[in-house]
Design a protein around this nucleic acid. Sequence first.
DNA 1: ACACCAATAATAGTATTACTACTTTTCAAT
DNA 2: ATTGAAAAGTAGTAATACTATTATTGGTGT
Lengths: 229, 229
Amino acid sequence: MEFHVSFHLNEKVYLKDPESSEVGKQLIKTAIELIYDLGFEHFTFKKLALQVNTTEATVYRYFENKHRLLLYILNWYWSYMEFLVMFKLQNVADPGQKLHVIIELLTQELPQSAGALNYNVKFLNQIIISESSKVYLVKEVGEINKSEVFKPYKDLCATIAQVITEYNPAYPYPRSLSSTLIETSHYQQFFCSYLPRLTDNKTGDDRAFVVGFLKDLLFRSISKSDSHE
Amino acid sequence: MEFHVSFHLNEKVYLKDPESSEVGKQLIKTAIELIYDLGFEHFTFKKLALQVNTTEATVYRYFENKHRLLLYILNWYWSYMEFLVMFKLQNVADPGQKLHVIIELLTQELPQSAGALNYNVKFLNQIIISESSKVYLVKEVGEINKSEVFKPYKDLCATIAQVITEYNPAYPYPRSLSSTLIETSHYQQFFCSYLPRLTDNKTGDDRAFVVGFLKDLLFRSISKSDSHE
DNA sequence: ACACCAATAATAGTATTACTACTTTTCAAT
DNA sequence: ATTGAAAAGTAGTAATACTATTATTGGTGT
């Protein structure tokens, strides 16, 4: 079965919807490749325009700056991730089982098949891991937040938090634990690759290690046993 | 009692030791103020030179680029934090008590009195929270890591991991948990300030909330009770 | 078919940033 | 005083982040 998913991303992220034109779509696809190749700080609109065989001015008609373009990519990712969570939890009744599925989704590579992605999933995943925190760790975060462009992240976080509360209604930190799981999934994978002494990964399989760590962290935190002291 | 602490930071972080001259010291002190005011992306050597009444070329004689300068500040912070941990654990025997002290240190503001800091501690703390991950979330991380400039972070992480192992020798993720505590301390504080819906903070006191969350996370993770399922 | 208009794209800039090469000054040792 | 090394300043360049202006296209109405 083939199907097509699309989200209407907050219009304030872009100046002109990149989905509305062929060049626009090409820009996103190529941006993902370039950000992966160069890293976000070395990525420029000039290089992007060159790669897509258009001009810098054209790129600026779609996005205010490269930060907004990254935000667009992440909005897409967060929306897609929440969709996947909803979808995969459809017929799972047990909240514990739901949480297992969620951890796998947060850590495993996006399925290339599902959804409507011509995007390179491997690259997209690396971008999520290495660059995502750069969209909010900026001086302008307060201003940016006013335009609701972090809503997909907050929604994803709220969705996970709800399952946590379902599992253990008495747990007092469902949202903080959700955001911690998301962030920890990213930088523990990053650490495994580049600063392994910040982890305990002995195996070769980074993802498997991170899944193990996250599940331990999650289920011990929300277990209904009495407090520790 | 007044005392003076100093660390010999890895020479590969700088081109010329800023501690070796009056201008150098002024550069660090002013850099902390400017990075706090402008955010790291808007901070430039030109602005720094202007503020210190010197020239851009002089700043470049101390640091290869602004990324290295940030790395210097963080090296200083990590070294100082590890010193504080060692110092404060001196007469604490119980590993559980030790971990309480560590969480407080990781989350509370640095004591202005202790050490030899003319640095503005309030600013420094915000920089740690908002900018620290930018020193390793870069394409060049592998290359940078070779010169051992992340050693202070790894050491701090190892020190905390050791206390965790002391508390529960069977716990399989002491290092990952340490790095998670450090990182989580930062961005949960950041989220409390700017994206509060990613947290469960209802009180006004961000730090107290984060301390509570981290202690819960830590002690539930390493409690010796049987596994959850 | 042709003029007209709006949307879209390309050209050609500017200001700032990141960095470098070269020159000048300082200041201690002869 | 003279010299030579270290430190600091001057004056650039190339790249980046944008912007204003000019050209091009493509669809309407007559």
